[in-house]
């Protein structure tokens, strides 16, 4: 009774035995629906794992499109400390699909949250929707408002100028404002503000909610930029903490399962939206846990490099060399002039 069956003659990667190999060789990517050219502007957003992706995109020769790089008079180290250039705009980590959807709505004036600012833990005020971007907080509400206006303008530029959007889903657990449903990236009280049970509530997003939010967010982008193509990934980083009365690992597996399924559904239903398996590369038994640090949570650079190597292989055929970072010579030139003028002063004084 031998004969044809559905598995006969299928490619090697479909079989566990033949798909296994050396740790660094795992490549679970199938067919991709587009390539990323050297001139294509790639916008990034997402959870903390997305920071690695954003950082490596530039190194790999992709054009990481940063619409809020910070003023070039300020040195790159200081700008990085204030989270400029970490993602395409200074939105900090975006953990949930609802957070992304609401950011876009805020950028286009479709949603104005009740929560406008929180008291900072070290004085000043912080933005409830990006509480960690500003070490020490903003001076006052006026400064926060001015910065927010610039930030949301940068988000709009990112949306309208991108060719490719790479978004990394991170969490399903979130804290909401009961008054308007605004989603905060961190629980009130963690990095500013005060937790108030009457105002704040916990929510664990479901598959349907996540898929609807993600599809709506991508739809908002497409409505303003029809050419935008999208790569969706899921962060492999486990939850740092769960708000539910159960083990953090159980909450992690729920969260990642929801995100993975939602990503699958959205990618299957939208043209030009690919799922990229960075989650699978890092967590696969094929790599035998080698990509996690000793704490079992942080992803090691070797793992990120593996992910980006695979990403480049499949999407980067046309990508060119790394784009040079913006450099500003104004301040150096002015300092040189002041020094020379000071020398002239000395000469004149003799």
């Amino acid at each position: 009774m031998s004969g044809r069956h559905p598995y006969a003659g299928q490619p090697a990667e479909r079989f566990w035995r033949s798909a296994s190999g050396a740790v660094g060789e795992l490549d679970p990517v199938g067919k991709v629906s587009f390539r990323i050219g050297a001139a294509d502007r790639v916008v990034t957003a997402g959870s903390c794992f997305a920071q690695h992706v954003a950082r490596h995109l530039g190194l790999a020769g992709f054009r990481h499109h940063v619409t809020e790089p910070g003023h070039p008079l300020i040195g790159p180290v200081e700008r990085a400390a204030f989270q400029y250039g970490m993602f395409s705009a200074r939105y900090g980590n975006i953990y949930t699909a609802r957070q992304l959807r609401q950011l876009l709505a805020r950028a286009y004036g479709e949603f104005v949250p009740v929560a406008e600012c929180w008291d900072g833990p070290q004085g000043g005020v912080v933005d409830p929707f990006r509480p960690q971007i500003q070490p020490g907080g903003f001076l006052h509400l006026a400064e926060l408002r001015a910065d927010r206006a610039q930030h949301l303008a940068a988000v709009r530029r990112a949306v309208e100028e991108m060719e490719v959007f790479v978004f990394t889903l991170g969490l399903t657990e979130a804290w909401l404002d009961r008054r308007d449903g605004a989603v905060f990236p961190l629980a009130p009280g963690v990095a500013g503000g005060v937790f108030d049970e009457a105002v704040h509530e916990f929510h664990n997003f479901t598959v349907d909610e996540t898929a609807q939010d993600l599809a709506a967010a991508l739809g908002m982008i497409r409505a303003r930029n029809a050419r935008a193509r999208v790569v969706v990934t899921v962060s492999p980083v486990p939850l740092a903490a769960t708000a539910l009365p159960r083990h953090v690992w159980v909450s992690t597996t729920y969260s990642k399962a929801v995100l993975r399924v939602a990503a699958e559904q959205v990618c299957a239903g939208m043209e030009g939206v690919d799922y990229f398996p960075s989650y699978e590369i890092i967590t696969s038994p094929h790599v035998r846990g080698r990509y996690f640090a000793a704490d079992g949570r942080a992803v090691l650079e070797e793992g990120v490099e593996h992910v980006m190597r695979v990403f480049l292989r499949h999407y980067g055929g046309a990508a060119g060399g790394a784009v040079a970072a913006e450099e500003d010579t104004h301040l150096a030139e002015m300092e040189r002039i002041v020094r020379v003028i000071c020398d002239e002063e000395a000469i004149r004084g003799e």
Partner: peptide, 20 residues
């Protein structure tokens, strides 16, 4: 105040740069 139409650099960032 600040002058309308100009890019606003957060004070904390300017101060950090000056301090360095």
């Amino acid at each position: 105040g600040v002058e309308a139409g100009r890019e606003i650099i957060p004070f904390g960032l300017v101060a950090t740069c000056f301090r360095r």
